[in-house]
């Protein structure tokens, strides 16, 4: 039995490259967020049924979409870290979890705020909100499991396994919640109706989704950079940074 212990992915290289990416991506993201928000909140036409309150979908939908995608990013990074023993993938997985959890929380929060004018209550057991809540728990599970392990290498592996298990389960959870919702409450108000949306409403939404993807990437990279510094605190490349 041969056991190879690779050290793929060099932290100094990643730190340098991510710095360069952020220098471009961060201003771009902010610009897209501002343009998308102004477009969606001020210029997009008002919804015929819900009035202005529908405009929160310009935050709610992108946050939900990217929060879900973030879980897959985390799980795939976890798989890479397990299969190829790549440290950098483990860093990415660990750093994606809080970003994804924050987006999930934003999605839940904006959904609740939207719920008040739309349904007259802050919380409705709607299929999508419920699925988001479960996704939030899945993220929390990974974060708390990571914290619970004293040995951080073990923590990384355990979380990689857990996030893969979660990834397999997410489609099942989403389908089951959809079925549950259709069983108990025949859909009266759908949360989003992208298909029925006029293109003048859709365009700013697509821009905001793109902007949230970029936001996720920026937050992930920033998080990874600080994690790399923390892990490499005693190494020469970090000391070299501190001197400059």
């Amino acid at each position: 039995m041969w056991t190879w212990f690779h050290k793929l992915g060099s932290p100094p290289w990643m730190y340098r490259i991510s710095g360069r990416i952020l220098a471009i991506l961060l201003p771009l993201t902010i610009a897209m967020l501002v343009v998308g928000a102004v477009w969606g909140l001020l210029y997009a036409p008002m919804d015929f049924k819900q009035g202005n309150s529908f405009r929160i979908i310009y935050f709610h939908v992108p946050a939900s979409v990217v929060a879900l995608a973030g879980y897959y990013v985390m799980a795939v990074a976890g798989a890479v870290s397990l299969i190829w023993r790549m440290k950098m993938a483990e860093v990415a997985m660990k750093c994606a979890a809080p970003v994804g959890a924050a987006l999930t929380f934003l999605s839940l929060l904006s959904g609740a705020i939207w719920g008040k004018p739309t349904w007259g209550t802050y919380w409705v057991w709607d299929a999508r909100i419920t699925s988001m809540l479960i996704l939030f728990f899945l993220y929390l599970g990974v974060i708390v499991l990571y914290q619970a392990y004293e040995n951080k290498e073990a923590a990384g592996k355990a979380c990689a396994v857990l996030s893969l298990v979660g990834m397999v389960n997410i489609p099942i959870i989403y389908k089951s919640v959809d079925w549950w919702y259709s069983l108990h409450q025949p859909a009266t108000i759908r949360f989003t109706e992208e298909s029925a949306m006029h293109s003048s409403m859709l365009q700013p939404l697509l821009l905001m989704i793109l902007a949230f993807y970029c936001l996720f990437t920026c937050a992930l990279l920033l998080n990874m950079r600080s994690e790399l510094l923390r892990r490499g605190a005693s190494t020469s490349w970090v000391r070299g940074l501190a001197v400059n």
Partner: peptide
């Protein structure tokens, strides 16, 4: 024995 792999580098061939 192959029980500990955390924090290990190099290789062990049994």
């Amino acid at each position: 024995a192959g029980l500990s792999r955390l924090g290990l580098s190099g290789r062990i061939e049994a």
